[in-house]
Simulated scan of single mutants.
Amino acid sequence: MEKFKTVDLCAGIGGIRRGFELTGKTENVLSAENDKYACKTYEHLYNENPMHDITTDEFKELMNETDYDILLAGFPCQAFSAVGKREGFKDATRGTIFFYLAEMIEETRPKAFLLENVEGLLTHDKGNTFEVILDTLINQLDYRIVGVQENLMGDGFYFERSDLLRNAKDFGVPQNRPRVYLVGFDNQRYGEKIKKLKFRQLPKKRSRKPIYNDLNDVLVMGEDKSFYLAQGYVDTLKEHKSKQGAKGNGFGYVVVNAEGIKHPISNALLATGGSGKERNLVYDPQEGIAGLVVKNKKTPLNDEGIRMMTPDEWAKLQGFLGYAFVENGEETFSFPDDVSNTQRYKQLGNSVAIPVIEEIAIKLVDSLEKLESE
């Protein structure tokens, strides 16, 4: 059977695309990303520049001209209008990225899609946002969503949050990263055939042995001094944690491999602000680090051996390094040399855990093969 053609929208550095490519049954025919730094990394990995703005008429025309089967998108979470169902998605979602994705789905009718988003999408705007999304995809665009049950009367749908959430830690990488995954199949194209599919729920875990047993398999000890925290920064983090603790909050820095943790895992890697780093600090003591004066750090290095994770360690936790780009035993993943560490953290924090995508992709592609062969 010919490979299924994918389009990779809101592409970032191509994590969703790569998860599908690992099935060996897809090829990507169009990509879109508007962050110039992410585009640089994407081009470095895939030899194509995805710089497109999906909100433009030009891209809409390009999509209409593209022959493809599966739409992929890790779209941003935005507030929608409260008018919701009564006015239809074009009124409820106008101006959001989801609006443009929904329009493309309406006009190009992909056989299937995968949409990915943060866990907070489920509760965003008191649940209104997610209700509008599901109403749009199910009732207005006529797609069957894996994990969502339609009422027998045909007048609504229901779901359990747990049916649409999957966590990277269950898929072979030691990272606590719950995300929402929406897989849809075209009712208009396949009709009753969809009801025969065994793909009724998202895979709950990796189907093969874990890639890493725990965080100890990911971390590289004895890292460069530039990754160690200044003493003043550590003191500030401790003070902040103490103040939050006094208020009954659990916020604050975390040393993820602190002594006594038998099987450490990381917290979610985040693209925004410092919290993705501060909640993923590493205990990595080595001789000669404490008290060192390092350029651009306001105070000497801390005396507790605390450092940030490196971009390479983040890349392992997302499945990029050491897994998804290993070809014939050779590692082929890298960043362009001129992409800064700041950008590397951002791009990885914005990306997906590829092993989760891969498991979903295996199920999705297998289902499409069955639908197409009947």
Score class of each variant (00 low, 15 high):
134 L>Y: 10
43 E>G: 06
277 K>L: 15
200 R>A: 13
2 E>I: 10
44 H>F: 14
25 K>D: 12
217 D>L: 03
308 M>R: 15
275 S>N: 13
227 F>Q: 10
23 T>G: 02
287 E>Y: 07
76 P>Q: 12
70 I>W: 05
136 T>V: 08
12 G>S: 05
133 I>W: 14
105 I>T: 03
108 T>L: 01
207 S>C: 05
368 L>M: 11
9 L>Y: 09
104 M>C: 07
293 V>C: 10
86 R>T: 14
181 Y>R: 12
58 E>A: 14
110 P>Q: 03
255 V>I: 15
337 D>I: 05
156 G>D: 09
48 E>C: 13
344 R>F: 10
99 F>R: 02
16 I>R: 04
127 G>F: 11
266 S>T: 11
7 V>F: 04
97 I>S: 11
99 F>H: 15
143 Y>C: 09
12 G>P: 04
47 N>I: 01
284 D>Y: 10
364 L>M: 14
184 G>C: 08
282 V>N: 00
23 T>I: 01
45 L>V: 03
257 N>V: 00
231 Q>G: 05
63 M>N: 07
45 L>E: 09
113 F>T: 09
127 G>N: 04
372 E>Y: 00
175 Q>E: 12
287 E>N: 12
253 Y>H: 09
317 L>D: 02
31 S>K: 07
224 D>F: 06
272 T>N: 14
160 E>K: 14
109 R>H: 12
340 S>M: 06
156 G>R: 08
224 D>N: 15
240 H>F: 14
15 G>Y: 07
252 G>V: 03
346 K>Q: 14
53 D>A: 04
86 R>K: 15
227 F>W: 14
259 E>T: 08
159 F>C: 00
164 L>N: 06
100 Y>P: 00
239 E>K: 14
310 T>S: 13
168 A>H: 08
121 L>T: 08
139 N>S: 15
210 P>T: 11
335 F>E: 05
